[in-house]
């Protein structure tokens, strides 16, 4: 296959897969000063260190209204966040649907509302999926708990399962 052919194949969106190019955004939510709340950021650190992802990454303490504008520039968005309850496999995918019913605080806007605003204001509806990672400790500490570290590895595995690898890799 020639170079043009490879590029053409790379651009085909595969259902249920994460496109591995600049049209994809991964948002890591959290606060690494609160132990396992830093899972979203730790995921981005690991993703960057792995060198397998060619899309864009952004760190966030929480989602804000302006993220509706940010995600409007992408076809696919993965939001990675710590989960305060247990998950069967320690990590799980959760699809995101637009939501127009919520109570606003300056500190937190749910992903579904961001998606709703993105469509309403910018006429774009990227595919948004949340990758939840179960945490255990939420105290004032830098560093993940042992359980969270294991769950981070599981989440990374789930992400890699969906990631479309470049044909020339």
């Amino acid at each position: 296959m020639n170079e043009a052919g490879i590029k053409a194949v790379e651009k085909i969106l595969v259902a249920g897969k994460i496109q591995n190019d600049t049209r994809t955004l991964v948002l890591g939510i959290g606060n690494n000063g609160r132990s396992d709340d830093g899972l979203g950021w730790a995921f981005l650190d690991e993703l960057e260190a792995s060198g397998i992802f060619n899309g864009k990454m952004e760190y966030r303490y929480q989602l804000g209204i302006e993220d509706a504008e940010l995600i409007s520039h992408f076809d696919q968005v993965v939001i990675v966040d710590a989960y305060a309850d247990s998950l069967e496999r320690g990590a799980a995918w959760q699809p995101c649907k637009p939501e127009d019913n919520f109570s606003f605080t300056t500190h937190e806007v749910p992903p579904g509302v961001i998606l709703h605003l993105c469509h309403d204001l910018y006429g774009k509806t990227p595919q948004v999926d949340c990758l939840l990672i179960a945490g255990k400790d939420w105290g004032l500490k830098i560093g993940l708990s042992e359980d969270a570290c294991q769950n981070l590895d599981r989440a990374f595995g789930l992400f890699k399962e969906r990631l479309v690898y470049q044909l020339n890799e």
């Binding site: 209204i65 302006e66 504008e69 109570s103 606003f104 204001l121």
Partner: peptide, 22 residues
């Protein structure tokens, strides 16, 4: 009484607000 309602009813104002903060 929240910014999402502003965004839905005053789209251009909201879009400018978002970009000014950005």
């Amino acid at each position: 009484r929240n910014v999402v309602a502003v965004a839905m009813e005053h789209k251009e104002l909201a879009k400018k607000g978002i970009l000014m903060r950005k």
